[in-house]
Design a protein around this nucleic acid. Structure first.
Length: 196
DNA sequence: GCAATGATTTACT
DNA sequence: GTAAATCATTGCC
């Protein structure tokens, strides 16, 4: 079943990031459904430098982070990669969770088609820029609500033992200084689909 | 108005 | 291991 609105609107973004592991991310693009199990997330909060909305600075790009929890935040990085985030917390509190990797579940052939014939299946969704391409997410998906029929997250009853979850520092945000060391990255231990 | 740069991926040395 | 690709957003002039 789909995760309820209330799941995203709780105040502790780090806790939500951890709980998203093992959940299913579904998209319906070009009339085809594709889905993957979330195996890697990172939490971002307006209180630390790693976040686009650091210090509650609102800009045109990150405006959707200030919406209430349960919206999607998609933006372009390095000029060519769409990164997918989930907005959490209450309205005007800019917290978000970056989905860094998923394990393919449904629509494998469709995802391979979008990614091109070159990449083998293990590289299909093992990175934030790759999974958005595989699932058909691009910047037009920014600001969508995660309870519609285009994109949503399901709890499909996957059992994830607590000791299979690992926390580590986030990746690629060296510019954030001390905040870069926060152990706000969560991964499923031993998954073959983690980003490298 | 304009230059700097990034929550990355890929290919090549 | 290193570097290039490539562009919207940002912040400063």
């Amino acid at each position: 079943m789909k995760l309820p609105e209330s799941f995203y609107q709780r105040p502790n973004v780090v806790k939500i990031a951890r709980e998203l592991l093992g959940k299913g991310l579904f998209t319906r693009a070009e009339k085809r459904v594709t889905a993957g199990m979330i195996v890697e997330t990172e939490a971002y909060s307006w209180k630390e430098r790693g976040c686009h909305a650091f210090g509650a600075r609102k800009t045109q790009r990150n405006a959707v982070m200030f919406a209430k929890g349960g919206h999607s935040y998609v933006y372009l990085c390095y000029g060519m990669h769409n990164l997918f985030n989930i907005v959490t917390n209450q309205e005007n509190v800019a917290d978000a969770i970056l989905i860094r990797a998923v394990e393919p579940m449904e629509g494998m052939e469709e995802m391979k088609r979008r990614r091109g014939p070159i990449s083998n299946s293990f590289h299909l969704t093992s990175g934030p820029g790759k999974l958005t391409k595989a699932l058909g997410i691009d910047r037009k998906w920014n600001g969508k609500f995660l309870l519609g029929n285009e994109i949503w997250i399901e709890d499909f009853g996957h059992k994830l033992p607590k000791n299979d979850i690992e926390a580590s520092p986030r990746i690629g945000i060296d510019y954030a200084g001390e905040d870069a060391k926060l152990p706000w990255r969560f991964t499923v231990k031993g998954s073959l689909w983690l980003s490298k």
